[in-house]
Each structure stands twice: as C-alpha cells, then as structure tokens.
Design a protein around this nucleic acid. Structure first.
Length: 209
DNA sequence: ACGAGGATGCTCT
DNA sequence: GAGCATCCTCGTG
C-alpha cells in the first residue's frame, strides 16, 4: 500500500495517443477524487477502448458525419474534443459511466474505466455504495465505481490532466505486459469480436466473474 | 453457483 | 419506439 498522499496528474500528452495504448497503460494508474479535505483514491484494474472508427463507439455515427464535412453533435461530440477530458454519460436510466477522451483533438476515442481497486477513502466509498458487501464490490463495475468515487454528470468535459477535484495519476506499481489480459468488451452488441477490454490478470477487483 | 427479469431515462432513428 | 458500454434481487439447484 502506498504511503504518500500527494499525486501528480498524468500530462495531457499521455491521452493524446492511440486509444488501445492508453487503455493498456491506464491499468495501474490512480483515479484521484478530492472532496473538500478528503481524498478518494483507487487503482484502475480494468478498461475498455472505444474508437470512432468502430460501431460500438458512441461517436461512430458522428464520425461518419464529420467525414462528410458536417459538425459533430449531441452527446458524443465530447469524444472529438481535447484528449484527457472526461466523458461521463448516463446509461440504463440509472448509472453514470466514466470515460477519458483519447487521441489527438478531432479524432474521436475514449477509454471506459470498468473497474478499480480502492486505495484510500474506503470508509467513504462504503457510504457512497451502501449495497457493497465486501471491499471488492465497491468498484468492480463501471456503474459501481462512479458511485464509489462520487463521479457524476458535473464531471462531463472536466480536464483530468490538471490537479483538481478529479484527475488521473501514475500508479505506485507498474503493470507488466504479461499481466495484462485482453478480451472482448462487455455489454455491447456491435463489434463484439474486437479484443479491446483489458484487465490485470488475477486481480480480485475486476468486474464480472 | 447461476440465471432471469425489473428498474429507469436518455439518445438516436 | 428500440436499444442501450448496468446493477440488484429473487428464484432455483
């Protein structure tokens, strides 16, 4: 367990790269959520990549439009914007899902944070997720971690590369390439064949089984 | 253990 | 009106 409580945000350039690469390299990084004087911190253990070229991405239809010379519109216009900004959207009428925009500005892409391992502020996370029986239930799913870290619609388009109420920071231990498992993304019906979900092998806080 | 089904509202066609 | 990048509860075995 890390002892320090000071965290430095990942630079914007980290996110302005290939979405698959960012999705892999975010494993082991910290989500830092500052609420007044307290800090909630969690290690990312599962991600999914979404790129505008591919139909499961929310920005797919918009990307076609942009290529015809029209402007992007609606919810997914955020994905064309500055890398390292948050894309927080409402799903199934009940849950907020937390993504980070990737690729250079103008190219749509994002990484969905699917599971985290709590590091600091576990007591508060339990209050924010009263249904959790065990620590591993606090963040082992995208809807759950948004609740545990108090990430809601106010953070849509928030800059995650600057210190503030929500940002991402380098982790305390590197995740080796051989520890990363790639597989199909969860809960989608299109482009199911792409192995664009990544998680830390054997980690107890990963979603699903 | 595992699977089915309900809750609930936004987005896009 | 259909389809969701989900979670929880309640059956059954």
């Amino acid at each position: 367990m890390r002892k320090t409580t000071h965290f430095t945000p990942l630079p914007q350039a980290f996110f302005a790269r290939d979405t698959l690469r960012v999705a892999r390299e975010l494993l082991g990084c910290f989500v830092v959520r500052r609420r007044g004087s307290e800090q909630l911190v969690a290690r990312i253990v599962e991600t999914e990549a979404y790129h505008g070229d591919e139909p499961a991405c929310h920005a797919h239809a918009n990307f076609q439009r942009v290529r015809r010379g029209e402007a992007p519109r609606g919810r997914s216009a955020v994905l064309f914007g500055a890398p390292g900004t948050a894309y927080v959207y409402f799903n199934y009428g009940m849950y907020w899902l937390f993504n980070v925009v990737t690729e250079p500005e103008g190219t749509p892409g994002a990484v969905l944070v699917r599971a985290v391992e709590p590091v600091f502020g576990i007591e508060r996370m339990r209050e924010l997720r009263p249904h959790a029986q065990r620590d591993r239930d606090l963040g082992n799913g995208p809807g759950k971690l948004a609740l545990a870290l108090d990430i809601g619609p106010a953070f849509n388009e928030h800059a995650l590369y600057a210190p503030g109420e929500l940002f991402l920071a380098r982790g305390d231990r590197a995740v080796a390439a051989r520890e990363i498992v790639a597989g199909p993304r969860i809960g989608i019906s299109k482009a199911r064949d792409l192995p664009w979900r990544f998680h830390v092998r054997g980690n107890e806080h990963v979603s699903g089984r």
